[in-house]
Design a protein around this nucleic acid. Sequence first.
RNA 1: GCCCUCGUAGCGCAAUUGGAUAGAGCGUUUGCUUGCGGAGCAAAAGGUUGCAGAUUCGAAUUCUGCCGAGGGCACCA
Length: 589
Amino acid sequence: MFEAEQDRIDSQIQAWLKEKELPILPLQWNSVPFSGHWGITTSFFQIASAEARQSGAKTNVPERAGVLAAQIAEHLGVPSGFEKVEAVKGYLNLYYSSAEYTRRVVDTVIDQGDQYGRGARKNVQVMVEFSHPNTHKAFHVGHLRSAFLGDVLARILDGAGYDVVRANYPGDIGLHVIKWLWNYMAFHAGEKPPVEGKTRWMGSLYAEANRRLEENPDLDTEMRAVYTRWDQQDPEIVALWNETRQWSLDGFNEMYDLLDIRFDKYYFPSMAVLPGKEIVDDLIRRGIAEDGRPENAVVVKIDEKLGLKNEKYRVMVILRSDSTALYATEDLALVQMKFNDYPKLEKSIYVVDVRQALYFQQLFKTLEIAGFPKAVNCLHIPYELVTLPGNVAMASREGTVVLLEDLVHEAVQRALEIVKAKNPDLSPSEQETIAKAVALGAIRYPMIARETTKLVSFDWEAALDFNGQAAPYIQYAYVRTGSILRKSEGPGPGSIIPGSELLPAEIELVNCISRLPRELQNAAAEYRPLSIAALAYDLARAFNDFYNQCPVLQAPEPVRQSRLRLVMAARQAIGNALNLLGIQAPQAM
RNA sequence: GCCCUCGUAGCGCAAUUGGAUAGAGCGUUUGCUUGCGGAGCAAAAGGUUGCAGAUUCGAAUUCUGCCGAGGGCACCA
C-alpha cells in the first residue's frame, strides 16, 4: 500500500551503493516481522556476500552487512513518513509514522468500501473448471473440496482483476451412469425421486447397482449392452438417460444454491463424445495414435513419440476397443471446445484431485503433440482428498461416505441451538439465517485453509467445532465490529489523524488491514486460497486483540472517533476477506 | 520396478516463498463476567522441523541419499 515510499528509499539506497562502488543488487523488501510494529525491512547480507566474492578477501559477511546497514541508516536519517530507522544485525528496519499511515489505511478502506483490496482489471480471461460431480451418484463430503477450492479460486482471481469464467463439467455419461440405468430399468422402472433428497436417492440406487453387479458378475455383459445402446443413440435409452440425468442436475443445483456456488458455463462429456471420436480418428490418420481395434484400444504412446528413455507420460488410452468413448476421448474435445467458445481465454484451469495428475499431463501433452497451440495454456491444479478418520477414502460404491446433506443438516442444527441461546429476541427466520451462515462457514473454512497438497481428514467432532481457528471466530469478530458501530450513534466524521499514542494492538490491526491487496494478488498468482483464509483469521485475531485492549465507546475524544474509524475499516476488511472466501458475514450471531 | 506428493508441539495445521526469537488453534493446567456480546481474552506447559550429508553469510524451506505414509502407472473417472 505504500509502494511509493518504499521505492523512494530503495532508489536512495541504490544511489548510495553506487556512490560507494558497492555491488548493485535488487533489495528484497518485507514487512517488519515483529508483532505490534509496523514498517518495512530489508537486509544487506547479499550485498556483503557479493562484495566478499568480488574482492576475494576473507570477510565476516554478517558483520559487514551490519556495518552497511548502520551506514545506510545514518545516511538516510529518518525519511519523511517514517518515525524510526534502525540497523539491527544486518537488517535495516524503517518504521512507519503510525498515526499518518493509519489515517491513510483507514481512509482508503472506508473510501473504497467493498472494492478495498481488489485489483485493477487486467483484461485477462481465465476459466476455472471445478466441482464436476458425477450424475447418478451421491454428493458427499469428499466432493466439497473441489467445489469450495474452485469457487474460492474463482473469487480470488476475480478479485485480483481477472475475468473469470466458472465452468462445471458434470460426468453425465460413463460406466457409472450405465450401471445406474441398467439397475433402474431392471428393478425400479417407472419410479421417481422424492422431492426432498433427490441426490440421496440417486446415490442409493447407484450403490445398489454396484452391489448387484458384484454379487453376480454375469450381469456385466447385460449392463455393458446398455452402453452400446446408448452409444448408438437408442431412443428409449437416450430418453431415460436424459430424464434421470436431469434429476441429478436438479439436485446438484439445489446444493450449489445452498453452498453459494454458481457457474457461468456447463460442459458435459456427453456432448464431447462425437467431436472426441473425430479427434481420435484424426490422430490415427496422422500416425499419432495407434489403432489396435478390435482386440486392443486406441492409444497414444507418448513417451515413444517424444523419444523419452524413461517412463514419464506412458501410454494414454483414448478410445475403447469396442469404440465406445472414455473420458479421455471427451476431454480431448473439451479442451478445444473451451478455447473455441472463449477465443480470448488465456488460461484454462482444472481443479481436479491429485490422482488424475498423470492423466492431465497425458492429455495436455497429447494435444501438444497434435499441434494444438493452446495446450500450454491448460493447467491442472491438483488437490488431495478428503478422507475419513483412519485414512479411509470415501467411496460411493462402498457406502463409506458422509453425505453433504447430512453434514449440513447436523451443522445447522448445532449452530441453531447456540444462536437461539444467545439471541433469543431474534425471529426464528433470522435465527435460521444466522445458523446457516455459521454452519456453512464452518464447513467451508477447513477445506480451503490448508495446503492443497495435504489430505483433509474429516471427522464429525472437528467439523462441528465452532471454536478456535475456524470461520465462526472470524464471523464473530465481524459481528463485534457491527455491535460497536451500532452503539456509536452514527458514523464517525471524515478523515482524522489518530493521536500519536497508538497501542501495539492498534498498529497490528492496521497492519493486517493493509495486507489485503498484496495478499490477494499473491493468492491469485499462486492459486492459493490458503493465503486469504489465513489473513482473514489474522484480521479477526488482531481485531479481538484490539477489542480487548482498546476501549472505543468510552475513550475520550479524539481517540474515540479515530478508533471508531478504525473499527469501520476493520469491519470492511474482514467483510471483504470473508467475501473472497465465500463465507457469509452475519449481522448477529 | 518407475513417477508424484507429504513428514513441523500429544493431535490437526501455519511460517510473508532462503532471513531476525519456528507461530496460532484443539487438547491439558491456571486465571478473567455490575465493562463495546465469554462462539471471547490472559498465562503456563509442550520443538534436535523424520534421519544423514551438501549448497549458502544464513535452511523447516533448495539439492542428494536413506526411513516412514499416501497416491498414480493400457481400455475406471
